[in-house]
Design a protein around this nucleic acid. Structure first.
Length: 404
RNA sequence: GUGGGAUUAGCUCAGCUGGUUAGAGCACUGGUUUGUGGUGCCGGGGGUCACGGGUUCGAAUCCCGCAUCCCACCCCA
């Protein structure tokens, strides 16, 4: 038997596809309310796109990409995340030169060659939005409120963690200070932290090792090192969230794993899905457009992991809907087929191809979750009528076929 | 990539220290004296016990390997 590849799942069970499509419906409609419109970009992109955006020091690019040389000798890879492709499209269409505000949302599969576990797949689905052209921190707040709206509508509880990563005025200096600090305690920290010092020094701050944590208590704090602009925007953001009743926790150790983030960084986490607890994450990336050869354009966005959210969604109660048609005599089957076909012009309608007794039809209609069970037996066939039972209200009537 | 656990019917699982044709519940399917479902009763189909080796008179059961899933690390959505 041929099986799907490791960490790549089918979404076909009733419980799964209903949650999946329901999520997309809710998330898309919220995004549209915020003025975003749909964008679709290719799953396959030039590898250098991700090297230059996500960053070569990140694990995503460093060891998790599905990368290969295609038949035209191009170095390509399956997208590991969604932002880079949208930014590429934005620049390619010269929207950076057009000016103004551009807001997009997308959803689709992402690929990372990781060891699968709960909430972590090799092919997984993200829903994300990207906003270009606004440096106002109000847009950052709108992003966060949009995620909150989606999660609230889906009945998903969350904690919001917030941080500011600074910009090119304050971050590099902070990073230098932090590296100096780490070097001062380097002989006492764990091997992972030594490695992090080289690749992504800020990551040492959320090391799980208690011994390291004790040492880092005296480490310089990023939030204390913000420049004036970053600090005032961060304060403004907190005020907006307060005013809109969005609860948050400041997490000075929150670091986004993708290199392109600056200033606002946020993560929505759930305590109910195991160790892969991040259900949405995002932030500002004001430098990314110019890193990818576009005109400097401020931007902010987020992405949500659909599989991680699926089991948390509170599905609305399903109501009976549509028609089930059945015949009790072989002679009536043809009539049932054409009647069903007519009904389908305006309603959901299914039918049974075999003549069955009434009890069997009612069972089938119930199983199909139909609202109406409609039967033609010998009596009805003779009189040109159809028997209709409302399974919800438990009412039944016999109507003329032309009035059905 | 590193450690630990699991893998028996479509699903959830039972199967004691190795011993005849491998079980249950749910699901599916058929019937149930006159045309009434979700909630009665009786029947039926469905498993090379993940896969490959080994030990043994005999393996779902013990040993080795491998794959996948799960948990943790790591990383992130």
């Amino acid at each position: 038997m041929i099986k799907s590849l490791r960490g790549m799942n089918d979404i076909l069970e009733e419980d799964e596809y209903k949650r999946f499509t329901y999520f997309l419906k809710v998330a898309s409609s919220v995004a549209e309310k915020y003025g975003f419109h749909y964008i679709e970009t290719p799953l396959l992109e030039e590898t250098s796109l991700f090297k230059r955006s996500v960053g070569e020091s990140s694990d995503i690019v460093g060891k998790e990409m599905y990368q290969f040389i295609d038949k035209g000798e191009n170095d390509v890879c399956l997208r590991p995340e969604g932002t880079a492709g949208v930014v590429r499209a934005f620049i390619q269409k010269k929207l950076d030169r057009a000016g103004g505000t551009h807001r997009f949302f997308y959803y689709g599969p992402m690929f990372r060659y990781e060891r699968p576990q709960k909430g972590r797949l090799r092919e997984f689905h993200q829903f994300g939005v990207e906003s270009f052209g606004l440096e106002s921190v109000y847009e950052d707040a709108a992003m966060i409120m949009m995620v909150a709206d989606i999660l609230n509508e889906l009945g998903i509880g969350y904690r919001l963690q917030l941080n500011s990563l600074g910009d090119q005025n304050c971050m590099p200096q902070y990073r230098d200070n932090l590296v100096s600090f780490i070097e001062s305690v380097e002989d006492k920290i764990c091997e992972d932290c030594k490695r992090r010092k080289e690749t992504n020094p800020i990551r040492v701050l959320d090391c799980k090792n208690e011994h390291c944590q004790a040492l880092y208590e005296n480490a310089p704090k990023l939030l204390n090192a913000l420049c004036e602009n970053c600090e005032s925007d961060f304060n403004k953001l907190k005020n907006i969230l307060d005013a809109n009743n969005i609860a948050y926790e400041i997490d000075t150790n929150l670091v986004r794993g993708l290199d392109y983030y600056s200033k606002t960084a946020f993560e929505f986490v759930s305590d109910n899905i195991g160790s892969q607890s991040a259900i949405a994450g995002g932030g500002r990336y004001d430098r990314l457009v110019e890193f990818l050869d576009g005109r400097p354009t401020p931007a902010v966005g987020f992405a949500m992991g659909i599989e991680r959210l699926m089991e948390l969604i509170e599905m609305p109660q399903e109501k009976r809907s549509g028609y089930y048609l059945g015949a009790m005599d072989d002679e009536a089957v043809d009539l049932i087929i054409t009647t069903t076909q007519k009904k389908r012009k305006s309603d959901k309608a299914t039918c049974e191809y075999r003549a069955r007794n009434l009890k069997a039809h009612l069972k089938n209609a119930d199983k199909a979750n139909a609202r109406y069970c409609c039967i033609v037996g010998s009596n009805e066939l003779e009189n040109g009528t159809i028997w209709v039972k409302d399974l919800e209200e438990k009412r039944e009537e016999t109507v003329k076929l032309e009035d059905f």
